[in-house]
Design a protein around this nucleic acid. Structure first.
Length: 408
DNA sequence: CCTCCACTGGAATGTGAGGCGT
DNA sequence: ACGCCTCACATTCCAGTGGAGG
């Protein structure tokens, strides 16, 4: 490529024919495929539908807690069954449906606020719900009024419930009917990837929730292959070499059967091929994409994180690279953190706060923490280890402007 | 089975921003 | 304009923890 004037370059890029992708949307993460494209989840769909059965006649549906690792189709199946229920309901029965991602609204107030606003149809209820500013109790009041005015049954999906700060929301939702707050029946589908979630629940919540449980097993390599095969029409005909799909499936199966990951890799492979102006997507593209997807996943995890959290991770990465050990006591990491703070001219947090942030990172799956007891003179301490390759972590953290002042 | 140590993590409290109702 | 609410983030204080080694 000869260095020409910028206008030509831009034109080149824009006018480049897309000879790889036909319909890229099919590979987007949030994309809900047609039912005939949902692979290997027939059992799960049937079981979930049985729980919601009551709803279509206007009775109370059962509450369900769904377990399964990421990318096993939990959200997909729930959304699908929920919409089907709404569509097939008796004409006299009006069903309201909401999907709430608790990782976004992770406090009780935010969650009710979102639920109320999403279900509210102003022309029927005549009220508007402000996004913030009200007390929690008022949001509940709004919410009860809204569902009562509009629906016979409300089905609520709470995705990633384990990220909710406490159980109060579940408690109040499941108690609403007995407490005569509402006439509308409420069905809750709670989705969690922590198996012990229900065990950790408050006894009172458990008894009023009276939930059924549903487990989603990871996809096996064959199912992953089918899933990908079902989406190959995102590409132009005959651009995928034969080993592309099986290889993507194999990479994802190695992890834990994560369909999202499989699709991610496939999409990236396509993008890479496109960028290179290749005619076909090959095995090499897939291998490159796999590495890229790894970085991407991590970048997504920490992108929105506050600078303090990033600095803490940087400290841990730095230690991992320079020392022979893999895991480090909190004190050590804190000292390294203080060092970095000084260099980039950032305020230092107290050690107590530092510990909390580090623990948050563990919850997010970025670091791993083990308790260690040195006995007589050592006392109790925690050992922190980066899960991701420290090189990758460092690379990505360096993308943050605040880290510019940092050099080793 | 008891002791001992240094770190852990719960609780109380403060600050500042965002936003509603009157 | 004012009072009142919640939430996010941070600090301060300190009782509790738990396994190696006696």
């Amino acid at each position: 490529m000869s260095p020409g004037n910028p206008t030509d370059i831009a034109e080149d890029v824009f006018s480049q024919d897309d000879n790889i992708f036909a319909n890229r949307q099919l590979l987007n993460i949030g994309h809900v495929p047609n039912p005939d494209r949902i692979v290997g989840r027939d059992d799960e769909i049937r079981k979930l539908a049985e729980q919601l059965r009551g709803a279509i006649d206007g009775h109370a549906p059962d509450n369900v807690i769904i377990y399964g690792k990421t990318g096993t189709g939990k959200s997909l199946v729930s959304k699908y069954v929920m919409t089907r229920a709404q569509e097939t309901a008796e004409s006299a029965v009006s069903i309201g449906t909401v999907y709430l991602d608790c990782s976004e609204d992770n406090t009780e107030t935010q969650a009710v606020s979102s639920l109320a606003r999403r279900l509210n149809q102003q022309d029927i209820t005549g009220t508007a719900v402000p996004p913030t500013g009200l007390s929690t109790a008022k949001y509940y009041k709004h919410f009860w009024e809204i569902i009562d005015a509009q629906f016979d049954v409300a089905i609520i999906i709470l995705d990633e419930v384990d990220l909710l700060a406490n159980d109060d929301l579940l408690m109040k939702l499941s108690r609403a009917e007995e407490a005569d707050k509402v006439d509308c029946h409420i069905g809750i589908i709670a989705i969690s990837n922590k198996i012990q979630y229900a065990e950790d629940l408050n006894e009172r919540v458990k008894s009023s929730l009276r939930h059924k449980e549903l487990f989603f097993q990871p996809y096996d390599a064959t199912q992953l292959r089918d899933i990908l095969q079902n989406r190959t029409d995102a590409f132009q005909t005959d651009v995928l070499t034969d080993d592309v799909v099986p290889l993507c499936a194999a990479f994802a199966a190695q992890e834990h059967g994560d369909a999202r990951k499989a699709i991610d890799i496939l999409r990236h492979a396509g993008k890479i091929a496109y960028k290179q102006g290749a005619k076909m997507v090959t095995e090499a593209h897939v291998r490159e994409a796999q590495q890229y997807a790894e970085k991407d996943r991590f970048r997504e995890l920490i992108d929105g994180a506050p600078t303090q959290a990033k600095t803490i991770l940087m400290a841990l990465a730095e230690l991992s690279l320079n020392a022979e050990a893999e895991a480090f006591p909190t004190r050590k990491v804190f000292e390294q953190y203080q060092l970095i703070c000084k260099q980039i001219g950032m305020d230092e947090l107290t050690e107590r706060r530092f510990r909390d942030i580090l623990k948050e990172q563990a919850f997010l799956g970025i670091v791993e923490i083990h308790k260690k007891n040195q006995g007589l003179a050592g006392g109790v301490n925690l050992e922190n280890r980066l899960i991701e390759d420290p090189e990758i972590v460092k690379d990505i953290l360096r993308e943050d402007n605040r880290m510019n002042g940092w050099h080793d």
